[in-house]
Amino acid sequence: MNTRSLRVFAEVARTGSFSTAARNLGLTQPAVSFHIRSLEKEYGCVLVDRSLGRCRLTEPGQALLRHAQRILKVEEELSREMEGRRGEPSGTLLLAASNIPGEYILPRVLSRYRLRYPLVEPRLEVTDTRGVLDLVRAGEVDLGCVGSRDDEERLEYGRLCPDRLVFIAPGNHPLATRKRVKVDDLSGETLILREEGSGTRSHMLRILSELGLEISHLDCLVLGSTMAVIQAVAAGAGISVSSLWAVEPYARLGKVRVLALSGADLRRDFHYVILRRRPSTPAVEALVQVIEEMRPELEDELASFVGPPDRG
Results as ranks from 00 to 15, higher is better:
Pro282Asp: 13
Ile192Gln: 03
Gly102Glu: 02
Ser187Lys: 13
Ala264Phe: 09
Val241Ile: 15
Ser280Pro: 11
Ile105Arg: 01
Thr127Trp: 01
Gly16Glu: 04
His271Tyr: 15
Ala232Arg: 08
Val46Gln: 12
Leu6Trp: 00
Met227Gly: 02
Arg311Cys: 08
Leu205Val: 07
Val120Arg: 03
His173Cys: 05
Asp300Ile: 00
Val258Tyr: 04
Val247Glu: 03
Pro101Trp: 03
Ala13Lys: 09
Leu39Trp: 05
Ala176Glu: 06
Ile168Lys: 05
Cys45Pro: 01
Leu93Tyr: 03
Ala283Cys: 11
Arg116Ile: 08
Tyr43Gly: 06
Val181His: 06
Pro282Thr: 05
Gly212Val: 05
Leu205Asn: 06
Glu103Cys: 07
Cys161Tyr: 03
Gly84Pro: 01
Ala234Cys: 12
Pro162Trp: 04
Leu211Glu: 11
Ser51Tyr: 00
Ala228Phe: 05
Val132Met: 02
Arg277Glu: 15
Val141Ile: 11
Asp185Phe: 02
Leu287Cys: 05
Met82Gln: 13
Met294Ile: 14
Thr129Asp: 04
Arg295Asn: 06
Glu121Cys: 11
Cys220Glu: 14
Gly197Leu: 07
Glu11Asn: 04
Val132Thr: 05
Gln289Pro: 00
Arg311His: 14
Leu135Asp: 04
Leu133Thr: 08
Ser90Asn: 08
Ala176Ser: 15
Gly307Pro: 09
Arg180Cys: 11
Gly26Val: 09
Leu253Lys: 15
Gly307His: 05
Arg37Met: 08
Asp184Lys: 14
Arg137Val: 05
Met227Trp: 01
Val166Asn: 06
Asp184Val: 13
Leu193Ala: 08
Leu133Trp: 00
Ile291His: 07
His173Val: 04
Leu261Asp: 07
Ser187Ile: 14
Leu155Trp: 02
Pro60Glu: 04
Ser187Phe: 06
Ile239Lys: 12
Asp134Thr: 14
Pro122Leu: 08
Thr127Arg: 07
Glu152His: 09
Thr177Ala: 13
Val247Asn: 10
Arg311Gly: 09
Asp219Cys: 09
Gln231Leu: 11
Ala13Val: 07
Asp49Thr: 12
Arg164Asp: 03
Leu47Asp: 10
Arg164Tyr: 05
Leu124Val: 10
Val109Lys: 07
His173Lys: 02
Ser202Arg: 15
Asp49Leu: 03
Arg295Lys: 06
Lys73Thr: 09
Arg116Thr: 14
Gly254Ile: 13
His271Asn: 08
Ala234His: 14
Gly26Asp: 01
Gly147Ile: 03
Asn24Ala: 07
Pro249Arg: 07
Leu25Tyr: 08
Arg201Ile: 02
Glu140Met: 06
Arg154Glu: 15
Asn24Glu: 09
Ser5Ala: 15
Gly312Leu: 10
Glu293Phe: 01
Ala21His: 04
Val247Thr: 13
Gly144Met: 04
Arg23Phe: 13
Arg80Cys: 01
Phe34Thr: 14
Arg180Pro: 01
Pro296His: 00
Glu81Tyr: 12
Leu94Gly: 04
Arg112Lys: 07
Asn172Glu: 15
Arg137Leu: 11
His67Val: 00
Ala264Lys: 02
Val284Trp: 04
Ser304His: 09
Asp151Lys: 12
Thr3Gln: 09
Leu191Pro: 12
Val222Glu: 12
Lys182Leu: 14
